[in-house]
Nucleic acid binder design. Structure first.
Lengths: 256, 256
DNA sequence: CCTTGTGATTGACGCAACGTCACGGTGTAA
DNA sequence: TTACACCGTGACGTTGCGTCAATCACAAGG
């Protein structure tokens, strides 16, 4: 059975370029060249290619493969043993890298949360007076000094899984908010879903027992008042997202 | 504090070529160029380089690192998470490769043993008549048909650990043989040690209960008679190794 | 007979992240 | 002044191909 370069490339799942390259570096020569100068491969070449690809899979270099296949008394056992060592060393290195990434991830996550937290703290102080006017004494009690302290703890102790879960919820909220914006209705199901998800999301960051309808509505209002939050929401969803969320939360907190 | 390119390269453990390259691709520009056209780096560059090298360690590409360091609002957390995924995928692939190498190693080991075994079988048949003349009927009984069958099983069932252990013993034997050759005395301690190690080595390949002083001495004699074995021993140790082993075994089997 | 489509050829450049010359200028200690 | 270490800029090599580009080869259809 004879194969053209394309047929062999399809058969073996490699590109014709690869076969031409293997020809050039004398790794796999065609059986013969026909009158038109085309490469013609035979059964023997198919077998050889299979071998080559097998060793390539095992990450031998083409040069090594060439040596293995060209010298019949090649010490395959030794080569495999050595390759085994190499791969194991590589695996161990990867494991160390993964550990490093995980550590970095954890500390970075911590920093990010702390950063967000600091922003939020600053924001809260800034806005506390306004909120008091709007929602009365109650919110001050909720945001009292000890709450802040607990909150700090909460942030710091947030596990990686919790952090990821909170991110997932936030994303789902963004999607619902997008739908709500399309419907342009803060009372719609997606809008109310978004408000509920927002509440769930908050619970990852607010100390236990801190949640109240008023605080929730107040925060949503802040999203509209503070341009940093507004632009954050608009960058994540679309223009008007902060307003939509505020309106949705207003309805949500009024009804629950 | 200012640093020349060499000083920074020594400080960070990278080549000057690397620093010039990083300059060229705008990854790390020197603080300024002095009157002689030399690159001058400052404290800020040292920090930057540390960061670059850290991310390079984590196998980010230089392009990715460039993006990370040039845009201040880069999503580091996301990038790290993604890198974590990549590294894990890579690790899993490596683990599969290692498993494949191990399988190949096992089957290849099996083949090698079988091949050696076949050679040995052929050799035995060839030499059986001679041995009978030399050592009488007893050796025929030892090498009877059922023993061959058991032997086959033994070879096939040899575990990887056993195989490696046998190789270690063989190597130790070679070393003792070398010392014996230096002393040129088959009765010397190293020579007798080699003979004992040779017996231990044989026990990995001979079926249980097959060993006898006569068979051992007979095999050692074959090492001298058959040029293939002789040259094998000479390639592994030195000229005269097969003879030395035969003589040592002769003494060993006479005394034990 | 001509066109069209498909597959063949060689040759050249590009990629990632540098290593390694070669050739020439600079700075400083002896 | 000389030696020697250091600086600079090219330019080519590495590995295993991907991706053009330009040019043939061959079979089918109008």
């Amino acid at each position: 059975m004879n194969y053209s370069i394309k047929m062999l490339s399809d058969l073996a799942g490699v590109s014709t370029r690869t076969l031409r390259y293997y020809d050039k570096i004398d790794l796999l020569k065609p059986d013969f060249i026909n009158a038109s100068g085309y490469r013609v491969y035979g059964a023997k070449q198919v077998d050889l290619l299979q071998q080559i690809l097998f060793f390539r899979e095992l990450r031998f270099s083409l040069k090594e493969i060439h040596e293995m296949l060209s010298s019949p008394d090649f010490n395959l056992l030794g080569a495999l043993t050595e390759q085994h060592k190499k791969l194991n060393a590589e695996k161990e290195r990867l494991e160390r890298l993964i550990a490093t990434v995980e550590k970095t991830l954890a500390s970075q996550k911590g920093e990010t949360i702390m950063t967000d937290h600091e922003k939020f703290e600053g924001f809260k102080k800034e806005k506390l007076a306004q909120n008091e006017k709007r929602y009365g004494k109650e919110i001050r009690k909720k945001y009292g000094e000890d709450v802040v302290e607990k909150s700090n703890k909460q942030f710091a102790n947030l596990s990686k899984d919790d952090y990821e879960a909170s991110m997932a919820i936030q994303n789902e909220m963004f999607q619902n908010l997008q739908e709500a914006l399309n419907l342009n209705d803060p009372a719609s199901t997606p809008a109310q879903k978004a408000a509920d998800l927002h509440r769930q999301w908050l619970c990852y960051f607010w100390p236990k027992g801190t949640y109240s309808k008023e605080a929730h509505a107040g925060l949503a209002q802040m999203y509209v008042d503070d341009p940093r939050f507004t632009s954050y929401y608009e960058s994540k969803v679309a223009k008007g997202a902060a307003k939509m969320l505020r309106d949705a939360v207003k309805i949500y907190t009024a009804n629950v």
